[in-house]
Write a protein that binds this DNA or RNA. Structure first.
Lengths: 248, 248
DNA sequence: GCCCAATGGTTTGAATCTCAACCATTAAGA
DNA sequence: TCTTAATGGTTGAGATTCAAACCATTGGGC
């Protein structure tokens, strides 16, 4: 067998090999919980599952989890209270738009394209799904929360709305993908300023997407989602790629 | 703060909490490598990256990786040769369609819906992407390999073609999602028999999807991908859900 | 025939993580 | 006021995983 690449013949499989352990247990657990806070899975005031339960769900030991919870507490995201009816509660601290890793234009495009496939697909499937009254109510509440929330919480509330759409599909895999896509995209989105006019427009688009989903109009829901995503993509491409282009 | 659920108010975030360590290092590494073999990332004859390199890419120690490689060798999937110009080569052993976990109808639907969102979206984006001559060549080769391959290797070759489409998008996240979607779906697809007429039809659909992608017709590529996926979904729903329905 | 370098194979000690048992706190109910 | 039970807090032993150093094999080049 003659090898043209270290991996063998043909197109190398390099990119297909992904870390099964991208970091140590502490790092990955910290990132996971912070991501969930950032995308609104744990809104302020929310009480996390009890430590023993949460550790089991995350697949780490309680010792490891406790260390992470202490770090999150020290960073101001959690408050802990002992005793019966105690627990670990999420504060309303807003995660700083940290200096995320610098992405190449190709990476940025890769994230945007991924987000669009996921979120437009989610809108379509949600519109095709049978929604319970509870689910409809949750969608409306999430949409209203974005509109009525303070600007400081916009990113989190916006994310939560899009994830609520994913939850409406009934596919755990789409939910996971939506969470991941939002976490990736937020790292980029947080670098552009929130202008009131843009937020207003975005909120209107949310209403229309929601209406299409509730009406069961799959074509419309997907088209509106694409339009919505194109809006922020344009902002991003101009803001980030333009920047990168100039500094390049 | 009044809690309606253990996690707090409103819709519980339970489903959003995912294991950061679904299994131990040996298990997850074994699954990851076997999945890559199954989806054609490592075709027969392929030489894996050297151990030290592969361990680094997977994010595990060389000790852990070696243990997994030994298991895969014992299972017949790999052959190892020492010395200069040695290495670890993939055999042409076909993974048995093992008794995968029994899925509920909701889980099956969740997988199918996820696969459709990913693969239809991938077709669209691939058609919109600028393809190098090498990439076009790889796509054609992958499509041809499905058509000309033996039935025993069909699943692997079919998967590789769809993943090649994802690679054409240039988005690592779509590639990862396509690998995952394929691994999930294959667990289901392997339970239905491969009929020559179905394979013929599937191959024709592959050709048409490829043609649309190469021509840059995004609408067509996505529509054809949906039609292609609907075909196997129908087979699956009738075969699995019908079964479950009757036994239920 | 010897050398070299790239690969797999082995061993040892350290780091990380897990598990389980037990302690302390706390507010509601009796 | 005491009890209860659900929560967080602490400790020690063991398992898992890692890192690094070194050995053995092997085929091509000189």
């Amino acid at each position: 067998m003659e090898a043209s690449e270290a991996e063998g013949e043909g197109v190398p499989a390099g990119p297909l090999i992904r870390p099964v352990r991208p970091g140590n247990a502490l790092e990955t657990t910290f990132e996971a919980l912070l991501d969930l806070i950032k995308v609104g899975a744990f809104p302020p005031g929310w009480r996390l599952p009890p430590e023993r339960d949460l550790a089991a769900r995350l697949g780490v030991s309680r010792t490891t989890l406790r260390s992470v919870l202490q770090d999150l507490q020290a960073a101001g995201f959690l408050e802990v209270r002992r005793g019966r009816y105690g627990g670990t509660v999420v504060t309303d601290a807003v995660p700083e738009a940290s200096e995320t890793a610098v992405h190449s234009p190709a990476e940025i495009n890769g994230i945007l394209v991924y987000r669009r496939v996921i979120e437009a697909g989610v809108a379509r499937v949600a519109a095709q799904s049978t929604l319970t009254a509870e689910r409809r109510s949750a969608l409306r509440a999430a949409c209203r929360a974005v509109r009525e929330g303070e600007a400081a919480h916009y990113r989190r509330l916006d994310s939560r709305f899009h994830i609520a759409l994913a939850e409406a599909t009934g596919s755990q895999h789409l939910v996971d993908a939506a969470v991941e896509a939002r976490s990736l995209a937020n790292g980029l989105l947080n670098r552009i300023p929130l202008l009131p006019s843009n937020l207003e427009n975005s909120n209107r688009q949310h209403e229309r997407i929601l209406a299409a989903v509730l009406e069961g109009d799959a074509e419309q829901a997907e088209a509106l989602a694409c339009e919505h995503l194109e809006g922020t993509e344009s902002l991003l491409r101009g803001f980030l790629l333009g920047d990168e282009g100039r500094s390049g």
